[in-house]
Amino acid sequence: MIFLDDTDKKILNTIQFDFPLEKEPFMKLGNELGISEEEVIKRLQRLHDEGAIRKIGPIINRTGIGGTSTLVAANVPDERIDEVADYINEYQEVSHNYLRPERYNVWFTISAPDRVRIDNILNDLRKRTGLEFIDLPTKRLFKIGVKFDIR
Protein backbone atom coordinates (compact mmCIF):
# COMPACT_ATOMS: atom_id res chain seq x y z
CA MET A 1 0.00 0.00 0.00
CA ILE A 2 1.18 3.49 -0.82
CA PHE A 3 2.25 5.73 2.01
CA LEU A 4 0.50 9.10 2.01
CA ASP A 5 1.49 12.01 4.21
CA ASP A 6 -0.91 14.82 5.08
CA THR A 7 0.15 16.91 2.10
CA ASP A 8 -0.41 13.99 -0.29
CA LYS A 9 -3.86 13.48 1.18
CA LYS A 10 -4.70 17.15 0.79
CA ILE A 11 -3.54 17.07 -2.82
CA LEU A 12 -5.62 13.97 -3.57
CA ASN A 13 -8.74 15.31 -1.88
CA THR A 14 -8.41 18.61 -3.78
CA ILE A 15 -7.63 17.48 -7.30
CA GLN A 16 -10.47 15.01 -7.66
CA PHE A 17 -12.97 17.82 -8.12
CA ASP A 18 -11.15 21.13 -7.85
CA PHE A 19 -8.28 20.74 -10.25
CA PRO A 20 -7.47 24.29 -11.41
CA LEU A 21 -8.11 24.71 -15.12
CA GLU A 22 -5.30 27.18 -15.76
CA LYS A 23 -2.11 27.40 -17.77
CA GLU A 24 -0.03 26.59 -14.70
CA PRO A 25 -2.33 24.50 -12.53
CA PHE A 26 0.45 23.01 -10.43
CA MET A 27 1.67 26.44 -9.40
CA LYS A 28 -1.87 27.32 -8.35
CA LEU A 29 -2.10 24.12 -6.32
CA GLY A 30 1.26 24.87 -4.73
CA ASN A 31 0.07 28.31 -3.72
CA GLU A 32 -3.05 26.84 -2.14
CA LEU A 33 -1.06 24.23 -0.24
CA GLY A 34 1.91 26.43 0.65
CA ILE A 35 4.44 24.38 -1.28
CA SER A 36 6.37 25.04 -4.48
CA GLU A 37 5.19 24.15 -7.95
CA GLU A 38 8.18 21.86 -8.22
CA GLU A 39 7.19 19.97 -5.11
CA VAL A 40 3.59 19.58 -6.30
CA ILE A 41 4.85 18.04 -9.53
CA LYS A 42 7.30 15.79 -7.72
CA ARG A 43 4.56 14.53 -5.42
CA LEU A 44 2.08 14.03 -8.27
CA GLN A 45 4.65 12.08 -10.21
CA ARG A 46 5.26 9.74 -7.30
CA LEU A 47 1.53 9.33 -6.66
CA HIS A 48 1.04 8.54 -10.33
CA ASP A 49 3.99 6.13 -10.57
CA GLU A 50 2.82 4.21 -7.53
CA GLY A 51 -0.80 4.05 -8.64
CA ALA A 52 -2.58 6.44 -6.26
CA ILE A 53 -3.43 8.63 -9.27
CA ARG A 54 -4.43 6.87 -12.46
CA LYS A 55 -4.61 10.05 -14.49
CA ILE A 56 -5.59 13.68 -14.37
CA GLY A 57 -8.03 14.38 -17.15
CA PRO A 58 -11.66 14.75 -18.18
CA ILE A 59 -14.32 12.36 -16.86
CA ILE A 60 -16.51 12.13 -19.94
CA ASN A 61 -20.29 12.04 -19.59
CA ARG A 62 -21.51 9.60 -22.24
CA THR A 63 -25.11 10.70 -22.11
CA GLY A 64 -24.00 14.34 -22.13
CA ILE A 65 -22.54 13.86 -25.62
CA GLY A 66 -25.50 11.95 -26.98
CA GLY A 67 -24.33 8.47 -26.09
CA THR A 68 -25.78 5.76 -23.94
CA SER A 69 -24.59 3.14 -21.47
CA THR A 70 -25.65 0.00 -19.69
CA LEU A 71 -24.66 -2.42 -16.94
CA VAL A 72 -24.42 -6.05 -17.97
CA ALA A 73 -24.17 -9.17 -15.85
CA ALA A 74 -23.32 -12.74 -16.77
CA ASN A 75 -23.31 -16.03 -14.96
CA VAL A 76 -19.91 -17.42 -15.93
CA PRO A 77 -18.67 -20.83 -14.77
CA ASP A 78 -15.59 -20.46 -12.56
CA GLU A 79 -13.25 -22.19 -14.98
CA ARG A 80 -14.21 -19.81 -17.81
CA ILE A 81 -14.02 -16.52 -15.94
CA ASP A 82 -10.60 -15.38 -17.20
CA GLU A 83 -11.35 -16.32 -20.79
CA VAL A 84 -14.72 -14.56 -20.78
CA ALA A 85 -13.30 -11.47 -19.01
CA ASP A 86 -10.71 -11.21 -21.79
CA TYR A 87 -13.40 -11.35 -24.48
CA ILE A 88 -15.35 -8.62 -22.72
CA ASN A 89 -12.30 -6.39 -22.23
CA GLU A 90 -11.49 -6.46 -25.94
CA TYR A 91 -14.25 -3.95 -26.62
CA GLN A 92 -13.07 -0.39 -26.29
CA GLU A 93 -16.62 0.54 -25.23
CA VAL A 94 -16.34 -1.56 -22.05
CA SER A 95 -15.30 0.93 -19.36
CA HIS A 96 -15.45 -1.21 -16.19
CA ASN A 97 -15.43 -4.95 -15.63
CA TYR A 98 -15.48 -6.70 -12.25
CA LEU A 99 -15.76 -10.12 -10.72
CA ARG A 100 -18.42 -10.03 -8.00
CA PRO A 101 -19.07 -13.57 -6.82
CA GLU A 102 -22.84 -14.01 -6.72
CA ARG A 103 -25.49 -15.66 -8.81
CA TYR A 104 -24.37 -13.35 -11.64
CA ASN A 105 -20.65 -12.98 -11.17
CA VAL A 106 -19.17 -10.94 -14.01
CA TRP A 107 -20.38 -7.33 -14.12
CA PHE A 108 -19.38 -4.79 -16.72
CA THR A 109 -20.46 -1.46 -18.15
CA ILE A 110 -20.65 -0.51 -21.83
CA SER A 111 -20.69 3.10 -23.02
CA ALA A 112 -21.33 3.69 -26.70
CA PRO A 113 -22.53 6.36 -29.10
CA ASP A 114 -25.88 4.59 -29.52
CA ARG A 115 -27.99 1.65 -28.42
CA VAL A 116 -27.38 -0.25 -31.67
CA ARG A 117 -23.69 -0.54 -30.89
CA ILE A 118 -24.47 -1.91 -27.41
CA ASP A 119 -26.84 -4.51 -28.88
CA ASN A 120 -24.18 -5.52 -31.40
CA ILE A 121 -21.58 -6.00 -28.69
CA LEU A 122 -23.99 -8.08 -26.59
CA ASN A 123 -25.00 -10.25 -29.54
CA ASP A 124 -21.38 -10.71 -30.46
CA LEU A 125 -20.54 -11.75 -26.88
CA ARG A 126 -23.46 -14.19 -26.76
CA LYS A 127 -22.23 -15.80 -29.95
CA ARG A 128 -18.59 -15.94 -28.94
CA THR A 129 -19.16 -17.27 -25.41
CA GLY A 130 -22.47 -19.13 -25.66
CA LEU A 131 -23.46 -17.44 -22.39
CA GLU A 132 -26.51 -15.41 -21.38
CA PHE A 133 -26.06 -11.75 -20.47
CA ILE A 134 -28.60 -9.65 -18.61
CA ASP A 135 -28.76 -6.09 -19.84
CA LEU A 136 -29.65 -3.46 -17.22
CA PRO A 137 -29.64 0.00 -18.85
CA THR A 138 -30.07 3.03 -16.61
CA LYS A 139 -33.74 3.94 -16.16
CA ARG A 140 -33.05 6.83 -13.86
CA LEU A 141 -29.88 8.39 -12.52
CA PHE A 142 -30.12 9.57 -8.93
CA LYS A 143 -26.45 10.27 -8.33
CA ILE A 144 -23.03 10.01 -9.85
CA GLY A 145 -20.17 11.68 -8.06
CA VAL A 146 -17.26 9.45 -7.30
CA LYS A 147 -15.24 11.21 -4.70
CA PHE A 148 -12.99 9.36 -2.32
CA ASP A 149 -12.63 10.80 1.13
CA ILE A 150 -8.96 10.00 1.68
CA ARG A 151 -8.21 9.70 5.36
Binding site: F17, A52, I53, R54, I56, G57, I59, F148, I150
Partner: peptide, 28 residues
Protein backbone atom coordinates in the same frame (compact mmCIF):
# COMPACT_ATOMS: atom_id res chain seq x y z
CA UNK B 1 -8.14 24.63 -24.43
CA UNK B 2 -8.78 25.76 -20.87
CA UNK B 3 -11.84 27.78 -21.86
CA UNK B 4 -13.27 24.90 -23.85
CA UNK B 5 -12.71 22.41 -21.02
CA UNK B 6 -14.46 24.83 -18.65
CA UNK B 7 -17.37 25.13 -21.06
CA UNK B 8 -17.62 21.34 -21.47
CA UNK B 9 -17.78 21.05 -17.69
CA UNK B 10 -20.54 23.65 -17.56
CA UNK B 11 -22.45 21.86 -20.31
CA UNK B 12 -22.02 18.51 -18.55
CA UNK B 13 -20.14 17.01 -21.49
CA UNK B 14 -17.56 16.16 -18.86
CA UNK B 15 -18.63 15.43 -15.31
CA UNK B 16 -15.42 16.82 -13.91
CA UNK B 17 -11.84 17.48 -14.82
CA UNK B 18 -9.49 16.04 -12.26
CA UNK B 19 -7.73 13.05 -10.85
CA UNK B 20 -8.97 9.50 -11.13
CA UNK B 21 -7.86 7.78 -7.96
CA UNK B 22 -6.36 4.31 -7.80
CA UNK B 23 -8.46 3.71 -4.74
CA UNK B 24 -7.27 0.17 -4.14
CA UNK B 25 -3.64 1.26 -4.09
CA UNK B 26 -4.30 3.73 -1.31
CA UNK B 27 -6.20 1.27 0.85
CA UNK B 28 -9.80 1.92 -0.18
Amino acid sequence: IIDRLGKMKEDNVIRRFGASIGHRDIGI
